[in-house]
Design a protein around this nucleic acid. Sequence first.
DNA 1: TAGATTGTTAATCGATTAACAATC
DNA 2: TAGATTGTTAATCGATTAACAATC
Lengths: 214, 214
Amino acid sequence: MEEREISQAVIGRLPRYYRYLGELLSNGVERISSSDLSKRMHVTASQIRQDLNNFGGFGQQGYGYNVKYLHTEIGKILGLNVNRNFVIIGAGNLGQALANYAGFERSGFILKGIFDVNPRLEGVSIRGIPIRMMDDLKAFIMENNIEIAVLTIPKTKAAEVAQMLADTNIKGIWNFAPTDLHLPKEVVVENVHLAESLMRLSYKVERYNEEHME
Amino acid sequence: MEEREISQAVIGRLPRYYRYLGELLSNGVERISSSDLSKRMHVTASQIRQDLNNFGGFGQQGYGYNVKYLHTEIGKILGLNVNRNFVIIGAGNLGQALANYAGFERSGFILKGIFDVNPRLEGVSIRGIPIRMMDDLKAFIMENNIEIAVLTIPKTKAAEVAQMLADTNIKGIWNFAPTDLHLPKEVVVENVHLAESLMRLSYKVERYNEEHME
DNA sequence: TAGATTGTTAATCGATTAACAATC
DNA sequence: TAGATTGTTAATCGATTAACAATC
């Protein structure tokens, strides 16, 4: 069925379009041209039109784009029009922070379970959801139609847990462990490597300093 | 003084090189060729050599790269050889999780202060560091040689706080608020947009599903 | 109809990969 | 010296920008 492959660069930008369109929508803006949007987003109008046309013609010559329509359509492309159940694996600081964040529900991500290895956390609830032990993970995923697992565990455990997940019907892993997971292609992975992000900031700070010392 | 500008693509990859070299070092590996490393990292050897040569010749013909030396040098490039003081602004779930994470110290990032607007948090301590009120932020930054601010506040407050920071001698902002900050170029920004990352995962899950339904 | 703005083709730019001479 | 592997130039590939005909 091979439709033309969309580049990672384009995919990477979609959520940002979605965010800007959501804000325009909140502000009651009904339509917007690629040129207007380009000024707000600090990208070229050409790039916006090219990006959107990967997915079809959402605009109208002489008019621009209908904000509400475009927002909805990009939402569909991103898969935000359906609900997806997810679990958090690793109830440490970061896992608990994510569990406490209610905003995901608004985008259709429904937290169904939290897992950890620490027996002292067993039964402790976060937003009404009890922390379960890892032994129950596999069965839980199969029985509760879980599509996404958030991995907030130490890197030493990550490969093993990821492999266990690959043996279930999980579809995607949001990986916060500072390591690269190697999994069959039917399990997609999105990494959030915080340490690497902080290093990039450090590089920029360092570089700016260098350039402006005399 | 205009040295040739290093591309964002290259900068983005440096922390990952640093991580792999750190692991090799832990495993007692003394030297590695671009070809060996390329297999481990799943990138081309050519890209590794090109990337590194942006910063100088770290290798030796016929030998490869000395792991310890290369690790140290990339650390220097990333500015990890010096300590930097930072503050966390916003002591919500995410802010507290980051404050609790001791790993940053190992990379030279020293948490000096935590700030919030909620008076009920005043004086509460995390890892021995008391939460302070926002009124004290500016003075604290100036007096404690703070170089980096971590922004874990709601997007409605982000622009205002960022502007306040720009009026201090802060050098970099690690921005977790889901909005784009527009600041003078002497304040560098690195964004962590978690919601966008989750949407990219959602896109991949959605797209994989589509391609494999019949 | 005239004006505006898209969708899309062509041109440009930059990043990645391949190739190989230099050299340890 | 022979073998290995870098550093670097050249070739290729892909992404971005520019331009404009199509069309609302």
